[in-house]
Simulated scan of single mutants.
Amino acid sequence: MPTQQHPIVVDLLGRLDTQQQEQFHERAGILEFDAGLDRPFAEALALLEIIRLHGWPPRQ
């Protein structure tokens, strides 16, 4: 059963371009499955990494 994304994550993801969203989902999956983190924590860390890489507001 998939977990529902936190509303803040949903809002911030909506501000990313398609490539940045793909990077987010890939990184969140790696953190969840390879690092053994729960999905909400993996998504939070993945989002922070995308922000670190691309700045905020995201450069498009």
Rank of each mutant, 00 (worst) to 15 (best):
M1A: 15
M1V: 14
M1N: 11
M1F: 14
P2H: 10
P2M: 09
P2V: 11
P2A: 15
T3A: 14
T3F: 09
T3W: 06
T3M: 11
Q4G: 03
Q5F: 03
Q5H: 13
H6V: 02
I8E: 15
I8S: 06
I8H: 09
I8T: 14
V9L: 02
V10P: 00
D11I: 04
L12W: 02
L13A: 06
L13G: 04
L13H: 01
G14N: 13
G14V: 09
G14T: 08
R15N: 06
L16A: 14
D17C: 13
D17P: 00
T18Q: 11
Q19D: 09
Q20N: 07
Q20F: 03
Q20S: 14
Q20P: 03
Q21T: 03
Q21P: 01
Q21R: 15
E22P: 00
E22C: 02
E22A: 15
E22H: 11
Q23I: 03
Q23M: 10
Q23H: 06
Q23R: 07
Q23T: 04
F24A: 02
F24R: 00
H25D: 06
H25Q: 13
R27T: 09
A28Q: 02
A28T: 03
G29P: 00
L31I: 08
L31H: 03
E32N: 08
E32V: 05
E32G: 00
F33T: 11
F33M: 07
F33Y: 12
A35N: 06
A35F: 08
L37K: 11
F41N: 10
A42E: 09
E43F: 02
E43H: 05
A44D: 08
A44L: 14
L45C: 08
L45Y: 07
L45A: 12
L45S: 04
A46N: 06
A46P: 04
A46C: 06
L47K: 02
L48E: 11
L48K: 08
E49F: 00
I50A: 01
I50G: 01
I50H: 01
I50T: 08
I51W: 01
I51S: 07
I51G: 01
R52H: 13
R52G: 02
R52L: 09
L53A: 13
L53K: 14
L53F: 01
H54P: 00
G55S: 15
G55W: 04
G55L: 05
W56D: 05
W56C: 07
W56F: 14
P57L: 12
P57H: 10
P57K: 04
P57T: 10
P58F: 12
R59P: 00
Q60L: 11
Q60D: 12
